[in-house]
Simulated assay, not measured.
Amino acid sequence: MTTPPSPESRFHIEVVKLLLQVATSDDRITHEEIQHLVATARGMSVPLEELAAITRCLKNGEPLPAPNLGLLRANPGAAIEAARELMASDSHVHAEEIEMLRQLRELLGVSG
């Protein structure tokens, strides 16, 4: 029997799902973005099984899992900062990524 993830771990899993959405928002994902995403997941101690399940969708061309915005609202600043860092990781911020960040801020109730 496996132990359910802690609230902090669940939040981190949702951040990784969000980052996957951000990374593919411009219809491509760079090697730098993949490296950043994996490094972020490791830094947050996201279980390998969770990361594998999330990234399997990307490899297989399946729909990406949607992040739980309710959980991300617990710390919207951290979610947005993680998205910003990912966007900057390949040194090219595209218009689609900027629009996604704007929408994310709106969805998470962050003004300014």
Rank of each mutant, 00 (worst) to 15 (best):
A53L: 05
A66P: 08
I54C: 04
P65W: 12
E97C: 01
V38P: 01
L37E: 02
F11E: 02
N60P: 04
K59Y: 10
S89K: 06
S91I: 09
L64H: 00
L19C: 03
K59I: 10
L37T: 03
A79I: 02
V22M: 07
L58A: 06
G109H: 09
V46Q: 05
A78K: 15
E8K: 15
N68Y: 04
I29T: 03
L18D: 02
S45N: 15
L20K: 00
E14N: 06
A95D: 13
A53S: 15
N60H: 09
E106F: 09
M87R: 03
A74P: 13
S91Q: 13
H12G: 08
P63N: 08
A82L: 08
G70H: 07
L19Q: 01
E96P: 04
L72F: 11
L69W: 14
S9V: 12
A39N: 12
E106G: 06
L18V: 05
R102E: 14
N75L: 07
L72Q: 07
V110N: 06
N60S: 09
T55I: 00
G109P: 13
I34T: 06
A23D: 00
I98P: 03
I98D: 15
L69S: 10
L104R: 00
S45D: 14
A74R: 15
C57T: 11
A95V: 13
A95K: 14
V15H: 02
E85Y: 10
L58Q: 06
S9G: 07
L51M: 11
P47L: 08
I54Y: 06
D27G: 08
S6D: 07
T3E: 14
N75E: 13
D90F: 00
L101T: 04
M100Y: 12
T3R: 11
T30V: 03
E14F: 00
P7Y: 08
M87D: 05
S9E: 09
V46K: 07
E33I: 02
M87Q: 03
P7H: 06
I29M: 04
M44G: 00
L104Q: 02
E62V: 04
H94V: 08
A78E: 15
G112T: 04
S25G: 07
P76Y: 13
R10C: 04
K17E: 09
H36G: 02
M100N: 00
L58G: 02
E49L: 12
P67W: 05
R84A: 11
A79D: 06
T40S: 05
I54D: 05
E97T: 03
M87W: 03
E99L: 11
H36I: 04
F11D: 01
L37R: 01
L72M: 07
L69H: 14
L18A: 05
V22K: 05
R84T: 11
L86M: 06
Q35S: 15
T3S: 12
H31N: 13
E81S: 07
L37S: 03
T55V: 02
E50V: 10
A41M: 01
L18T: 01
P4Y: 12
V15E: 01
H92F: 09
P63E: 14
P63G: 08
R73T: 13
T2G: 13
A82P: 05
L58P: 04
M1W: 14
E96Y: 08
R105M: 14
V16I: 08
S91A: 14
K59N: 11
G109Y: 03
A52Q: 10
E33C: 00
T3P: 10
A88Y: 11
D90L: 01
Q103G: 12
E49Y: 10
R73E: 15
